[in-house]
Amino acid sequence: MKEIIVDDKKAVQYKRRSWLSFVVFFAMNGLAYSAWKWLFGQPNNANGTKTLLRKGMETNESIFSHLFNEDKLAKEYPTDEAAKKPRVNGNLGLNNSFDAAQWKLNVVKATGDVLAISLEEIKKLPKVQVVFDFKCIEGWDQVTSWGGVRFSDFIKHFNLTKQQAMQYVGMVTPDEKYYVGIDMPSMLQPQTILCYEMNDAPLPINQGYPLRLIIPVKYGVKHIKRISTITFADTKPKDYWAENGYDYYTGH
């Protein structure tokens, strides 16, 4: 450490400098406190969060969606490590008046041009199994086993290449009470499946029978159960939890 010996006159100057530093220090404390008060006092928008925080989330989204590499796979596990009774954590969009016999998957190719696909048709496509660590936005995780058709295979099979060129996919439950919007690169990642099996058996009702999404590069909130309609868009489709203050992207 550097040390100097100073006379009284010089020492007074250093004392002054010391006081000045404290003035700046307290001014900065005040500034930081006011800035925090201002931010914290901002009202929530209709999307459940403050403008500045939403912008912050969107900046993170643009950084991490650029870094996104669809060749990076979520770690897979041996089937016997999968939970026998996976946790059921939400029933939004799963009302009881649902008639499974009438169910078809509606793919909106363009306004008025809807492709209605039965479960049998979907099951004819090559089946893949994904055993991965399912991560809930609440913080818990669980290794679970799912079977279904790759979304990218589904796109190819049903000639949806024009739709694939769009930036987002929207999915909605039959009662339209739950809905998600997901970026196309995540949808085309090879582990993203339209899922109709859990632990090698048909999906239970509370896990989204007849068809749900499994998308290991996202938190559980995006794994919509009981899909009724699929849409494509270049603007963000509406997303239930993003309307309630959560990040839209929530990507892994």
Partner: peptide
């Protein structure tokens, strides 16, 4: 980002 930075998750001994 446990998939994009899977190496970091692996170093830590997994997600949990």
């Amino acid at each position: 980002k446990p998939v994009q930075f899977g190496w970091a998750t692996a170093i830590c001994g997994g997600y949990a």
